[in-house]
Design a protein around this nucleic acid. Structure first.
Lengths: 359, 359
DNA sequence: ATAGCGATTTAAAACGTTATAAATCCATTC
DNA sequence: GAATGGATTTATAACGTTTTAAATCGCTAT
């Protein structure tokens, strides 16, 4: 299977130069190896592998054949040094992503989109509290990647500003409210909470409550907006649960909900943006002796198979994070490839059944 | 703040050569930039930054100062090309790791261990079912990383064999049963299930059941062994729940447990190696009208804050995956650094309170 | 014949770093 | 005063690739 380096006979009968005496059996093949094997110059081999039109079709085919035979693959470091392109995509991981595999799902999707390309995925977990703008700066200045993936955008996200100023390719999971458009993939949280709230009211609930995301993030605004639009339209009572959000540890959410329930005018329905929060809410209600589906209802967004298996009575809708990651990868590749039309670089994913049909 | 490239005056009064005329303001600084600025040769600058003893202390300090001033950081591609070292650690992600942030926690820990070193983390999700030996082969042959992190080992793991044969640095999460020792970090699942089972029996339960991991993995054997040792010592009835394992979707576990409970001689206690499985089990029991802590008990291993918040009555023990990742990173660095003493490269993490004290 | 041309191939340089071997300097020593 | 030697610095080459510019070849048109 493996071609010997000193075999000179060619199927096509062409003669070529004597092969270098140092037969390298241990080191991995380079362009030089192929050049020696075919009798061509290194430059020619390089261009042939790149399918440059100036190289004759016959030569190109021969070079590709030999390259495949000896298992050649280009040295990434050399390519990177020469071209300045890293063939690397960096992912900024937020701490919250340790919950329920958010980050892993996103990365699995990204990897799927990047499969078959030369791109590798590097991961930079964010250790600092607050914005990880330092990591963005580091990546850009040191040319560590050709593109960036981030999540949890803020309305005036300083990371986005910095990236836009430097014209560095990136895609966010989540929108901003900056005047300059930028590539993103987002879930339509407005439609989600709007439809979720309507659904609770349709079940006859009188006072829905909301557990939203941390207020500094853009998506928290969307969640709030959808909820408020629905309750205003219905003219019903409502409540925004204070002091906690989707990042609050489950135990605290549970206690907060139970405490609230022992006070007057407690809500009889909950809209919750995450599975953990929904489970914690149900536990808190259960601590008060209340039964889901009987005394109260919950609608939640689900990103794993956990919630509906544990609590089938929860109305839930699935947000496919692997698909999200995959689409972010596609868009980032387009952006790196020079696409500037924002319509091709922005994507708002709509909640699937059963909410979409209610719109 | 930023030193002008054409300023020649030196605080120490030394004279040096005229600076290259092309003042590069836009591109990032290289060794050449520092060489021009200090009047030294590129080689000298390189060695000074590497603190080579042959370079005078004074020069070293001066070079370091200038480098810091202009924000120099070495070009990774050039270093990699020259030295052959990639300064990259590859992580093989398994599909199961999408559950409850296993992978993200491990990576956060790894990143913590690698912080301050030159190492970056690249991620390779495994798309194929079964062993990802192809990825291991790819990484080694193409020199894509200096070290490897894997999880979910099998007793005769072919990936481990391949890595050992090629003397490639790696650390596994989980042990193997191969005769050649290799670096690993593992959780003592034997002690976990042994103590967990004893605990259930101490509560007066008569027939504990086990939900183990997928049988092909080493840790499933440890889980089974600890459980069996405890029930044999007690001489009690027991059951290994068939058809399902910790990777089974929560809904199926729930249904399987409920079904089993409607048959004769149902277990009155469960040992479960994961949170999702524990929650599914409790839901299944609840579907049969049985109450946790009253008619039955569960002991489970917990890797997030979810379980104890949702089901405080579950006896649970925390396995710290961030710490695990951090220790794997430390060990990998040692191994790459040339450490060969296996005692320094293997680590068995013992279950913490309340189980440890019972041993 | 030879200049010119299109098609194809090639040599040389460059990316930024480190390793090897050699050079320079300065203070001793004979 | 030249040789020795230690301390320090330097020139050169190399890693594997791509880019730029130039060379070679076979042909046709002058």
């Amino acid at each position: 299977m493996h071609h010997q380096a000193n075999v000179c006979a060619q199927p096509d009968g062409k003669t070529h130069r004597p092969v270098s005496s140092k037969t390298r059996t241990s080191t991995r093949p380079t362009l030089k190896t192929i050049a020696d094997l075919t009798g061509l110059a290194v430059t020619t081999v390089s261009r042939a592998l790149g399918n440059a039109p100036q190289i004759s079709l016959e030569t190109r085919e021969r070079v590709h054949r030999v390259a495949a035979e000896i298992g050649y693959s280009p040295d990434r470091a050399a390519q990177r040094l020469k071209t300045g392109r890293t063939n690397v995509i960096a992912v900024l991981l937020e701490p919250h992503e340790e919950i329920l595999g958010y980050g892993t799902s996103l990365m699995a999707g990204l990897a799927r989109a990047l499969q078959g390309t030369a791109y590798h995925l590097i991961v930079m977990p964010n250790f600092l509290h607050g914005s990880n703008i330092a990591a963005v700066d580091y990546i850009m200045r040191n040319g560590m990647a050709d593109g960036l993936i981030m999540s949890r955008t803020e309305p005036l996200d300083p990371r986005v500003k910095l990236l836009l100023e430097n014209d560095f390719p990136f895609v966010t999971h989540g929108r901003t409210e900056l005047s300059s458009a930028h590539p993103y993939v987002d879930y339509d949280n407005f439609t989600f909470t709007y439809a979720a709230t309507k659904r609770l009211l349709a079940k006859g609930r009188r006072k829905p409550a909301l557990i939203s995301g941390p207020s500094q993030y853009t998506f928290a605004g969307h969640i709030l907006h959808g909820f408020m639009t629905a309750v205003r339209e219905a003219g019903c009572a409502f409540e925004i649960i204070s002091d906690i959000d989707l990042d609050t540890p489950a135990g605290e959410i549970r206690d907060r909900i139970a405490r609230r329930n022992r006070e007057p005018d407690a809500p009889d329905a909950y809209v919750c943006g995450g599975e953990v929060g929904a489970l914690a809410t149900i536990t808190g209600m259960s601590d008060c002796g209340l039964t889901l589906g009987l005394e109260y209802d919950v609608v939640a967004k689900q990103t794993s198979s956990l919630l509906s298996a544990i609590q089938p009575k929860v109305e839930s809708i699935y947000e496919d994070l692997i698909d999200t990651g995959s689409r972010m990868g596609d868009i980032l590749l387009k952006r790196i490839g020079g696409e500037t039309d924002m319509r091709a670089l922005q994507l708002l994913l709509c909640p699937a059944e059963p909410f979409a049909k209610k719109q």
